[in-house]
Computed example of a mutant assay.
Amino acid sequence: MGWIQYGGSEDTIHIEDRALAHLKVVIAMKLRRQESFTLSWRHADGDAVGRSTIWLHPSIPLRFVFDDAEAAELNPRWIEDLMHTANSTGGISLIDEVLEPQN
């Protein structure tokens, strides 16, 4: 279980490493373009029940921390799906990965 630390807050946002790797790509693309947006997620097991949203802005420090030392293999479809939510009026929503059927 990885986490995001945002701004000067000591609070952490717990997100499974594989999902965090994909979010990192999408967030970096948006921030590189100097775009501000929201990120919404359901709280991880063990955290308070519910969901949260934060406002991401290029000038606010952001740190991604992964439990796994090896980088996850990225699923281009999931990145595309996350980017689609990022470009909506609701901002990025951490949606589930859709796996392509194997032939």
Rank of each mutant, 00 (worst) to 15 (best):
R63M: 13
T53A: 13
A44Q: 14
D45A: 11
G46S: 12
P101W: 06
R42E: 12
T85Q: 01
V25Q: 07
E16M: 08
G90P: 00
S40T: 15
L39E: 01
I95K: 12
Q102V: 10
L74F: 05
T53F: 03
G8Y: 09
N87L: 11
I4V: 14
S93R: 14
D96T: 10
M29E: 15
V25N: 04
P101Q: 07
I92N: 01
T85N: 01
S52L: 04
H84Q: 10
R18P: 00
I27Y: 00
E73I: 09
L82S: 02
D81E: 09
M83I: 02
T12W: 07
F64A: 07
A28Y: 03
I13S: 01
R51H: 13
D17P: 10
A48N: 05
I54Q: 08
I79D: 02
N75V: 06
N75H: 04
V49L: 11
I60D: 05
L82Y: 01
M1W: 04
E100F: 07
A71N: 12
N75R: 01
Q5V: 04
V25H: 03
Q5T: 14
G2N: 12
L82P: 02
A21E: 13
L31M: 13
L62S: 13
V98T: 14
T53R: 13
R63D: 14
H84E: 08
G91N: 09
V26W: 00
L56H: 03
L56Q: 04
V49P: 11
S59C: 09
D67A: 15
V25M: 01
W78H: 15
F37W: 07
G8V: 07
T53C: 05
G50N: 08
I92E: 00
E80F: 05
Y6C: 06
V25F: 01
P61I: 04
R42L: 06
L94E: 11
W78A: 03
D68G: 07
L94A: 11
S40W: 02
T89C: 03
S36L: 03
F37E: 00
D11F: 02
L39D: 07
V49E: 14
I79E: 00
H57Y: 12
L20D: 01
D17M: 07
M29K: 15
D81T: 03
P61L: 06
H22S: 04
L82C: 00
G46A: 11
R63H: 08
Q34H: 15
G50W: 02
G2A: 09
A48G: 09
V98R: 09
S59V: 11
I15Y: 03
F66I: 00
M29D: 13
L56S: 04
W3R: 14
L99C: 06
Q5M: 13
L82R: 01
W78L: 06
M1R: 09
S88V: 03
S52W: 02
P101S: 06
D45V: 11
I4D: 04
A44G: 07
L99R: 13
A72R: 08
V98L: 10
